[in-house]
Each structure stands twice: as structure tokens, then as C-alpha cells.
Design a protein around this nucleic acid. Structure first.
Length: 508
RNA sequence: CGCGGGGUGGAGAAGUGGCAUCUCGCGAGGCCCAUAACCUCGAGAUCCCGGGUUCGAAUCCCGGCCCCGCAACCA
């Protein structure tokens, strides 16, 4: 927990063939929470996200949107993604685009390392190519030997490609996975990857004929070939921290502490990528954590169904914190789940409005009413630490990426407070034993101070508002993570600023 | 036998060898500081089915049934 400790976290880089939807935000928000949590602990964080621009998909999207110049389209879309993330106050330190010069330099450097190792060879890629799909098909894709989409037989095509000797790393990969249980999480993904490596993994083609691909980084020394998108894309994690351009930064942050990915791309991240790194003689990321996918009201999210949710629309109505809260509380991180605006509404009103917002509001109201807004310490105030092990349980949950569990601990604290008010009945005490009021209110306010701290990574706006309303924003900003945890740290004679309820009821 | 996820009170989920948990909803009561918010109590579950292992299974094993992803935009 010092500045010498570092934490490097990444999200996948996203295709820019469309605008960001709620699923992209899910991954990015999770990474943002971890980044903010580590910063809270004063760890030196590097949080990277970005866009994958050397993809045929993007070329097609550019054409569809009427762009003649692909780069122009990529620039517009990359800007859209960046502004969406910044509108949602993602705290990434950098945003990588794979069409940047520095990335090309990094990829070339990486290619050379792998080539020097002897892991790149020229081979022949033989496949069934459907001209309708403009893509290769596998046996299993075909129905009666025909492309199910275009109802015609694919052409057999032979193409010269460069191959990466992936299979040579089978044993080393399995050994690494077995010796590092934390490497692939959750466990179910580890098993999945393990069996893939053991039974199916083969050498992979890592280039394409330039004539069939109108984008990408040329193979060094062979302009007739373009580097395959995944081989190029994975290297972004190196480029982002300076590989090939800023050695000091690279040495500082690599290897990554966590690659956050969706469950669809684990094979690339857990097999291909580590093997590439082994080949290049670089160290492996410490962990790859795969989250699940969610459906929308029980149905798969898809453009054709028209149920794709624009995060900006949700944020416009509820604010970004409720969205963050919902995604991380409602859906167990690492498993599949379901997103529903109805349940988002329920949680907004229940968990946020009633349990949290109303608690803050009623506590502040009583402080105003009984103590003219002043925070006082009662005689016994500091002698009873009313916290147990919330901070350490919370910390352990976040480190396991059990976001729901971490939030649950905070909500236990809120329920404790609501119950405490009910049992203590300050409105009675105020009349009968007014000298006991300061202690009761202090216990409530102090607990809210802790809650505001714990909410910081999850709901940064709400946390900031709470500190403001409690009248301790400046005071708390001076504290270290360790100081914040000490019971009784609420400054005496602070003046609360009641303000508006945190999560006002919304018209349906 | 392509790969994977899942089936837990009315709804949504957690739990993955030891008294079945949480949220919402429902019923009854309490409270009046508060955003008709808060607190308490209650009803409601053959933990998909059938075998097995075990002192003990929602949890492990075997066999079924059913749902859902991936192979087509899509984290």
C-alpha cells in the first residue's frame, strides 16, 4: 500500500464498428472500480482501455457508413468511444488505438522477437471460403456442405500465411496454469481453457494475404502479408505501457496485474497471448479474469432484436452511479446475468433511494433539528468502535472481484444504521435525555463517513456528494486510506450541509 | 458424443459437503426523524427428475429432462 506498489489493469480493446453499448460499459466500469479501489489504497495504478482498429469489421462498417477514407471513419469512431468513456468518467490513464504509430512500432518489435525465437514459419492455410460471407468456414459451420447463410458451397482456398508455433507451448502453458491457480479466473474458465489447450490447440495463422484484407499492419519484410488482427490486438497491452516507445514506463508497469475480458475471448487471452509472451521472452500477466454476459429481459442482446441498450440513455435518466451500482450488484461478476430496466428502477428506488439516500437524509435532518447542523462528540463517543471487520471483508471481496459481495457489506452497514435509528428513537431521546443525542448522531454520521469511503470506487459521484453533505469533503481529502478506517475520525464541530436527497424519486 | 453456462419460495439471485440465505413482492404489526421512506414478525422451497457415495448432499458421482450462450451484428 505504497507508491512503490503498482497495479496495471486493462480492458479488451473494442471494435469501432459501432457505438459503445451497455456490455462494453460493463467491462469498463468493472475495471474502473478496481482502478479506483487501488488508487484509494495509494497504489500506483495504470488503467488502460482503447480501440481495436485493424479489423476487417471496421473496414466494412466504414464502407457501410459511406466513408471512402477508412482512417477518417476510425478517427470519428475512436473519438466517439473516448468521449463516451470520459462522459461516464472512466478513470483510464490512457486510451490506446491500434492504428497509432507507436503500436505499429511495438508490434514490429514483438514480431521480431518471436521470429528470432524461431516461432514463426511460412505455411499454407487451407480453408473453405464463402464468398457470400467473405470469410472462412469450418466443417462444423456447414450444413450439408453448404454455408447455412448463403446456401452455397464454399470454395476451397489455399493461401500462404505465416504461422505461430503455438502448439510448441502446450506443455509450458498447462504447467503455468496448474502452478498458478489465480492465473485464470473464475475456475470454470480455467477448466475450459485447460481442456482447449490440451485437446484442440494447434498452430495458428497470424497473417493474411494483403489482397483479402484491406487493413492492418504489414508483416515486417513481407508486404504481401498483413498481420492477423488478434496477434496485433493483444500486443496493445504492451504498447499501452510503453513497449517499444517508453522503456521506463514499460518496466514499471508490465506485467499486467489483471486483464479483464469477456468470456468469449478467453482462448485468445489465456492460450495465445501467454504463449506469444513466452516466445517473446516477456513475463506473463498475473491474472486474466473473465466476466459473464447478460441478456436483456431474458433475451440475447442483439441489434436485430433491437434491444441493445445505450448506456448514455440510462445515465441520462438515473445517473452514472445507479448504473454502476446496478451492473455490479445485480449480476454476480464472473457469471452470466440479466439486465432489466424494471429491476434497475426497483433498485434505484429501493437500495439507493430508500436505504441509502433516505438514511443520509434522515440522519442529516436530525442533525439539523437537534443540533443546528453541528456535529458534536458525546462523552462516550470514541470509546465504542461500532465497526467490526467491514473494511477488511470489503477489501477481500474487491480483491477477489466479488463486487456484489463488497456492496453487500456496505448495505449491511446501512441496514444496521436504519435499525439503530429505529431502536434508539432519537425523537424520543431528544425530549427525555437530550444529552444522549450527540453520541447517537455521531455514531450515525461517523458510520456514513465510512460508507462514503467504501463507496468511492463504486459510486464516485455519490461518495463525493456524501462527503459534501456531511461537511467533511476537505477534511477527508487529506486522509490516507489507513487513516480513513479509524473509528471516530469524524471531525468535531463540522457543519453538515443537508442539500437535496441523493436519489430522489423519479416519475415513472 | 463440438465447446460452455444454467435449472434454489410468486419474481430475481446467493450459497457448492453440515440448522436453506438475500432482495423484491405478499400478509400482520410498529414507528413518525426521513424521499408514502424506516423497523419487527409471518406465510411461502419435495434446492429439475431418478439412482449412487457419505454419519450427513442444493452442494460430490452416474444417468435423464429442460432452458440459454458460442459457430451470424454483439462485452
Amino acid at each position: 500500500m505504497s507508491q512503490s506498489e503498482k497495479f496495471y489493469i486493462t480492458t479488451p480493446i473494442y471494435y469501432v464498428n459501432d457505438r459503445p453499448h451497455i456490455g462494453h460499459l460493463y467491462t469498463t466500469i468493472a475495471a474502473d472500480v478496481l482502478a479506483r479501489f487501488q488508487r484509494l489504497r495509494r497504489v500506483d495504478v495504470f488503467f488502460l482501455t482503447g480501440t481495436d482498429e485493424n479489423s476487417q469489421k471496421n473496414v466494412e462498417a466504414a464502407a457501410k457508413h459511406g466513408y471512402k477514407n477508412i482512417q477518417e471513419y476510425l478517427d470519428v469512431m475512436a473519438a466517439t468511444w473516448q468521449s463516451t468513456f470520459s462522459d461516464l468518467q472512466m478513470s483510464n490513464n490512457a486510451f490506446i488505438r491500434t492504428t497509432e504509430k507507436r503500436h505499429r512500432v511495438a508490434v514490429e518489435k514483438f514480431w521480431a522477437l518471436v521470429k528470432d525465437r524461431g516461432d514463426i514459419y511460412l505455411g499454407e492455410y487451407e480453408g473453405m471460403y464463402c464468398t457470400g460471407c467473405e470469410g472462412f468456414k469450418l466443417e462444423g459451420d456447414l450444413v450439408d456442405g453448404l454455408c447455412p447463410l448463403h446456401k452455397k458451397a464454399p470454395d476451397k482456398i489455399k493461401e500462404k500465411n505465416y504461422f505461430f508455433r503455438l502448439s510448441a507451448y502446450r506443455d509450458r502453458l498447462l504447467e503455468h496454469i496448474d502452478n498458478h491457480p489465480e492465473f485464470i479466473q473464475p475456475i470454470t474458465r480455467r477448466n475450459e481453457v485447460r481442456s482447449y489447450i490440451e485437446k484442440f490447440m494447434e498452430d495458428v495463422s497470424i497473417s493474411r494475404d494483403v489482397s483479402s484484407l484491406r487493413c492492418g499492419i504489414p508483416v515486417p519484410g513481407d508486404d504481401s502479408q498483413v498481420i492477423y488482427v488478434w496477434f496485433d490486438a493483444l500486443i496493445n497491452y504492451l504498447t499501452g505501457v510503453g513497449f517499444g516507445s517508453d522503456e521506463a514506463t514499460f518496466v514499471r508497469y508490465w506485467p499486467a496485474d489483471v486483464h479483464l475480458v469477456g468470456k468469449d475471448i478467453i482462448k485468445f487471452h489465456c492460450a495465445l497471448w501467454p504463449a506469444m509472451l513466452m516466445s517473446a521472452g516477456l513475463s506473463l500477466p498475473k491474472q486474466i479474469f473473465a466476466h459473464g454476459f447478460f441478456t436483456i429481459d431474458g433475451e440475447k442482446m442483439s441489434k436485430s432484436l433491437g434491444n441493445v441498450i445505450d448506456p448514455l440513455e440510462v445515465v441520462k435518466k438515473y445517473g452514472q452511479d445507479p448504473l454502476r451500482f446496478f451492473l455490479l450488484k445485480e449480476i454476480t461478476f464472473g457469471e452470466d446475468g440479466d439486465f432489466s430496466l424494471k429491476r434497475l428502477q426497483d433498485r434505484y428506488q429501493g437500495d439507493l433511494g430508500n436505504e441509502l439516500g433516505n438514511l443520509v437524509h434522515r440522519t442529516l435532518s436530525m442533525t439539523e433539528k437537534y443540533q443546528a447542523g453541528q456535529v458534536l462528540k458525546g462523552k462516550n463517543t470514541n470509546e465504542q468502535n461500532l465497526l467490526k471487520d467491514e473494511w477488511s471483508r470489503y477489501e477481500q471481496a474487491v480483491l477477489k472481484l466479488d463486487f456484489g459481495g463488497a456492496l453487500e457489506i456496505i448495505w449491511e452497514m446501512l441496514r444496521w444504521s436504519n435499525k439503530y435509528i429505529d431502536e434508539k428513537k432519537p425523537w424520543v431521546i431528544a425530549k427525555e435525555q437530550p444529552d444522549l443525542i450527540p453520541e447517537i448522531l455521531f455514531n450515525l454520521l461517523e458510520r456514513l463517513r465510512h460508507v462514503a469511503w467504501l463507496l468511492k470506487p463504486f459510486m464516485p459521484e455519490t461518495s463525493a456528494k456524501m462527503f459534501e453533505q456531511l461537511g467533511i469533503a476537505d477534511h477527508e481529502a487529506q486522509k490516507t486510506y489507513e487513516q480513513a478506517q479509524i473509528w471516530g475520525g469524524f471531525p468535531e464541530n463540522a457543519t453538515i450541509v443537508k442539500g437535496e436527497p441523493l436519489f430522489p424519486r423519479l416519475e415513472e
